[in-house]
Design a protein around this nucleic acid. Structure first.
Lengths: 145, 145
DNA sequence: ATAGCTGCAAAAGTTTTGCATGAAA
DNA sequence: TTTCATGCAAAACTTTTGCAGCTAT
């Protein structure tokens, strides 16, 4: 697995530094998404000295390389999560536990059709994010309320 | 129409001040969305003195009252648009001229079905934003490239 | 050797808060 | 008159940048 991560970094022409690899490992091991601050906290447990800007820069580079996906949360902060080899898809984000799950629904075809037919424009990209309660959080909400 | 806006403010237990009303009027007259800074610029043409915090506070209050809808743009800034009597819908945003157009496509039903059936969770809200080139910008891009 | 990383400190930019004054109900 | 709104200045926060020194290749 380390092997794979290193390979992915090399493919992107990013040097394999211990910190960069560690940032990637942390996110690869995370079921949901993390913000720069959270990643930094985890890094500080492993490296005696690591700067927050390093975390920001790496997250950005990794997201640009497609290894991570960057999402815009309604709190206006940045969050990133590890992107396996999955292609374009969208996410369900649990507003309670922050877990992220993949959705197969996309809607690209219908969107493209509407933009083409009624607006006479064309689509460059689209963003779909679904917020809700995951199974576990649905259950606990039901019990406690 | 002023009548309606005033009524909406009263319903929300918000006092009808000239500035609050003007902020609402500006957004009601806007086809797309505006950020606090843009709203402030427009306000400064109508009031000799108005503070940016006033704009922020009003936009927030109006959004909490459901008169405006607040969106988080990928640039991480806040934007608001007037929520007339149009129901839930999404937007096409021209990446070149920033024009916003309404989309009829939504996908809520399919999303809800997928979240219910495969994730066993439930949807609270969803965000769909489509970026592309509008008709006018498509044409000029075609000519110049 | 050289291109690319990192740390530190400082900057940038948006959004929020405190508080005294003024306006609406 | 009592509650809410506003202006101003300053704070709070997240994210970005500059630059000198260090590391991977």
């Amino acid at each position: 697995m380390d092997r794979d991560l290193k390979t992915r970094l090399k493919t992107l022409n990013l040097k394999v530094t211990p910190k960069r690899l560690a940032i990637l490992e942390v996110l690869a091991a995370e079921p949901g998404y993390l913000g720069p601050e959270e990643v930094w906290q985890k890094m500080k447990k492993r490296f005696k000295s690591i700067g927050l800007p390093t975390v920001y820069r790496n997250l950005e580079d990794l997201a640009n390389g497609g290894v991570l996906i960057k999402i815009i949360h309604p709190d206006r902060k940045l969050y990133y999560y590890f992107c396996g080899n999955t292609g374009h898809h969208h996410h369900f984000i649990c507003v309670s536990c922050k877990k992220v799950e993949d959705l197969s629904f996309c809607g690209a075809d219908e969107i493209e059709k509407e933009v083409r037919d009624s607006l006479k424009g064309h689509v460059v990209s689209h963003l779909l994010q679904v917020y809700g309660l995951c199974e576990d959080c649905s259950l606990s909400k039901t019990i406690s309320s």
